[in-house]
Write a protein that binds this DNA or RNA. Sequence first.
DNA 1: ACCACTACATAGTAACACTGAGTACACGAA
DNA 2: TTCGTGTACTCAGTGTTACTATGTAGTGGT
Lengths: 115, 115
Amino acid sequence: MGKQMTEMLKGTLEGIVLAILAAQPAYGYEITARLREQGFTDIAEGTVYALLVRIEQRGLVDVAKVPSEKGPPRKVYTLNAAGNSYLAEFWNTWSFLAERIGHLHRNNHSQEKGE
Amino acid sequence: MGKQMTEMLKGTLEGIVLAILAAQPAYGYEITARLREQGFTDIAEGTVYALLVRIEQRGLVDVAKVPSEKGPPRKVYTLNAAGNSYLAEFWNTWSFLAERIGHLHRNNHSQEKGE
DNA sequence: ACCACTACATAGTAACACTGAGTACACGAA
DNA sequence: TTCGTGTACTCAGTGTTACTATGTAGTGGT
């Protein structure tokens, strides 16, 4: 993966995964697959599992072990109240940053074109 | 500063500073001030200077020492060709990420409202 | 018996922003 | 003259994060 993307994912990947969980509960392997569907093709499995361990330890999710037909039991993660409020904070932070950077982006582009 | 913002700035602060330099050359103290104007009120001076050292070592900027009326000489940073192409790459990475996350954001919100 | 797919776990590494402190120059007030 | 304030840059140490690489294990097909 590009080094820029790696660095940029720091802080945002967590929010991305929480947002996926907000849509519906999911387990690690499934989350990895969903990320790949969404265009994040190069995110390693290990990265996702490590992140899930973190958000579990912080109490942002509830965990349930569910047997699988095709392999070891799944750990299904569900966003709880704390996770929801943390996610809401994430959206605030993201919105602020995206707005500021979007502003810079537009300025840079108009400059390139000599506007 | 919020912990989320700290983590989210990883990888993006560099692009933000390069974008500021793309608009016009500047020195460290000035860049810090400009960041504060743009709403990044809690970015420490030390953070900016460390970042400037990095981008100088990577050859993304040219540096000129200019005497100041009010203090030590200034190190004025100018974005060079390498810096410009690196910045272009940054915008690509950012656009991809912003689009993907924006998509998640809209989905989450429409879900909250039950749409 | 072997392989592919599913599913999770983890030790070690690199990169980055922050904290907190320090150095140094200019200038005006006390 | 000394002190404070604003300007301007530097740096060691810390915490957090995503990546790499590898390992463990269950299921089903050939």
